Simulated scan of single mutants.
Amino acid sequence: MSQQNVVAEPVVAPRMTGAARRDQILAAARTVFSARGYTASTDEVARAAGVSQPYVVRLFGSKRELFVETYRQASAQVLTALRSVEPGPDAGRRMGDAYVGLLTDRELLLLLMHGFIAGTDEEVGRIARHTLGEAFRLFRDASGADEDEARRFVAQGMLINVLLAVGAADHAGEDAGMDALVKCTIEAIEERNA
């Protein structure tokens, strides 16, 4: 019985469309910017996406434009979740649930926080202001809540975001005030969901 030399054919990955490559870079940018904020480089994003840094710049123009687009997508994700809630008597609770559900995505959470820090950029600031204002309006309109209740909804969401971003629950026992804040914030969510 003779052995034959078998030469395996190289596996060639299907060529990605421009739109798919753009989405791949934006997904990598979301990961990189959520971890390092605006200080991350286009080179880091390119490595994470498996493409060259000049390709990233060719598609997006600059790190700023890439960050703006990544932040725009994250903000749109929040608003889409809130818009998906039908108006009605329990719309406020369902909007809270929709928002809390988004926060299981740590990259989304951290990217939103980095956007607030980078809000000195006019475009990022515009997106952040629109997102906060639209969350306020959507809550008020869907739930029939007054402005004070809608303000508390947005403020509670921001507080939850900050507590999760700093890992407050993971550091129980370090600070009594923080422990109390985490406890009453989590209890408020649990009471709302009861």
Score class of each variant (00 low, 15 high):
Ser75Gly: 08
Val154Gly: 05
Thr70Val: 04
Gly88Asp: 04
Phe136Gly: 02
Leu159Tyr: 04
Thr120Ile: 08
Asp43Ala: 14
Arg83Leu: 07
Ala35Gln: 08
Asp148Leu: 14
Asp97Arg: 15
Gln24Arg: 15
Leu132Lys: 10
Leu26Asn: 01
Leu164Phe: 06
Ala49Leu: 05
Val56Asn: 06
Val154His: 07
Leu132Met: 14
Arg58Val: 04
Glu149Gln: 15
Glu174Met: 14
Arg47Met: 11
Asp175Ile: 03
Asn5Lys: 15
Arg21Val: 10
Glu191Trp: 13
Gly119Met: 07
Gly88Tyr: 06
Asp170Trp: 07
Ile186Ala: 09
Gly92Ser: 02
Glu134Cys: 01
Arg126Leu: 04
Ile160Tyr: 11
Leu138Arg: 08
Thr31Val: 13
Ala168Ser: 13
Arg93Lys: 14
Ala76Val: 01
Leu79Glu: 04
Glu69Trp: 06
Ala176Pro: 00
Val51Gln: 03
Ala169Gly: 01
Gly101Trp: 02
Glu134Ala: 03
Arg152Pro: 00
Arg152Ala: 12
Gln53Asn: 08
Val32Gly: 00
Asp23Trp: 05
Leu163Ile: 05
Arg137Pro: 00
Ala29Phe: 02
Arg192Ile: 03
Asp105Thr: 04
Ala128Glu: 02
Leu112Ser: 02
Val78Asn: 02
Ala91Tyr: 03
Glu65Thr: 09
Asn5Gln: 14
Ser34Val: 03
Asp105Gln: 06
Gly92Arg: 06
Glu123Ile: 15
His114Cys: 01
Cys184Phe: 10
Ile25Met: 10
Gly119Lys: 12
Leu110Glu: 14
Ala172Thr: 09
Ala176Thr: 07
